[in-house]
Amino acid sequence: MNHYDMQDDVTRRKIFWLLQRLTSLSLWKAKHSAFKVFAAAYETAVKTWPSTDPEAMEADHLKTIYEILSLYDKGLDELARGRRFIWRKGQALDRVVNRFNYLASYFYRDPEYWERGSQIEPYPPKVDALAKLMRASEYQMEHAPLEVWGTDDNFAQLMSPWALLSREKYNHTFYELAYPTFPGDLLEVPNPPGPVIQSGQTVPCDGIWEPVTIEQSRVLNVIPLGAKLFKNNGCFNYFVADTAAPNLSSFDDETFNVTARPTHWRLVWEDTRYLNGAIPDESQYFLDAAKLAEPANHGIVEPVRTGDICPVSGEWGTEEYGGKTVHVEQGAAMPDLLAKDNLGERKVHWVTWRLIRRS
């Protein structure tokens, strides 16, 4: 079973929740708070580490750090009023991401550890401690709401749910970003009729949009006049009003060329948060996995069958039909097992799964 298929209900709910989280005031305030801690530590390092220290930090970075802090102040003030233009090209929170990426790319330019804007070796311990403080203000795919601009292709920020759901994507070789803890009751994804726009057209409102294909619906082989069916065509994306709806990408396996693939986008959820000045409870975006309640029987998880909802993320195993171990995320449906029968034919079997190890 493909748990990263946008046809799968659990995948859709998780991406919907993650995009709301990435564009929430609480997450960007958390980014700001973490970056202030880093800024203070970096300033102290510049002022107190001896100039003869071979690991001394560059004082010139302080200019970029102060600029980022100022941009946070401007951007968060607007976001708290529901003004999301701050993610458009050149605006405050777009600049925060841009300047942070510059700072991270040129953070420590000792040639033993850095080459052409990339870290090539683990930093020395003191430098790494500062780098970890800096990365504490970073979230996977935090650029999701930023305006797509600058090329003829204008590819969407989020092409696949894999970028947000795969734990591998949170590991960036020399640092790892925190994987989010999902609430147990993820909301159902809305299914409104639209509006629907095409790539290149102006986005009419802030919100989460789904790429779709539009087909005529058939009922008893009769096409109702004006009836249409929306079929998913890729991963949800978050767009800001008055930007241009982007394209999807198409990859040619033979030529290895990536080309723009225009699509229709359907509004799934309009973002009207904070417009009236009220800040909702957003604590669900920062759940601590270690503090979540265990099942009632002291952590013992009962076996489940194919098709049941997975109660705990982790490695699950079955001894039936030769046995198998799979990784299943909490909230997903338990998979079946493809195995050979007595005649040597491969068939689908429903089996019982038992938890081997939590993730």
Rank of each mutant, 00 (worst) to 15 (best):
S313C: 05
G90I: 02
D341G: 01
A332E: 14
A104S: 13
D153A: 15
R346E: 13
W149E: 10
A92P: 01
E345Q: 15
A45W: 01
N297D: 15
T255F: 04
W162D: 15
G184D: 11
S105D: 07
I15C: 10
H143R: 04
I120V: 12
S24Q: 01
M334I: 08
A333Y: 09
Y72L: 07
K126D: 11
W17D: 07
A241W: 06
S51R: 15
E210R: 12
D185A: 14
V258Q: 12
I214F: 03
I223G: 05
S26E: 14
L177V: 05
S313I: 06
M57Q: 10
R167V: 02
D281F: 04
Y274S: 08
G194Y: 09
V97W: 15
P280Y: 06
W28Q: 06
S359K: 08
G117Q: 04
T318C: 06
F155S: 00
N342Y: 12
S118A: 07
L130D: 04
V189I: 06
R261V: 07
N257T: 04
Q198R: 14
F174E: 02
R83Q: 14
V348K: 14
E270P: 00
F251Q: 08
P224G: 06
W49F: 07
A129R: 09
N257G: 03
Y102Q: 13
D77W: 13
P124D: 03
G317F: 12
W350N: 15
R358T: 07
W265P: 00
R135V: 12
K132F: 04
R218H: 13
E78L: 15
D288C: 07
A178K: 14
A245H: 02
I309M: 13
N257E: 14
I279A: 04
K63V: 15
A244Q: 13
E176N: 08
R346F: 14
N257Y: 10
V222Y: 11
N2Q: 10
H349R: 04
A339Q: 02
Q157V: 08
I197V: 14
D308Q: 01
Q20F: 04
K29Y: 06
E55L: 14
L343R: 10
N232V: 12
C235E: 06
T202W: 00
E320S: 11
T48H: 08
F182M: 05
V222Q: 12
A241R: 11
R266N: 09
W17C: 09
N221A: 05
A30Q: 15
L79F: 09
D288E: 10
D152R: 13
E67N: 11
E67M: 09
T259F: 04
S33E: 13
T213F: 10
E176H: 05
R95I: 08
E43D: 11
L146E: 07
A333S: 14
T64G: 02
D341L: 04
P193T: 12
N171R: 12
A332R: 06
I223A: 13
I197H: 02
N98D: 13
V10Q: 14
W28C: 05
K324I: 09
D253L: 14
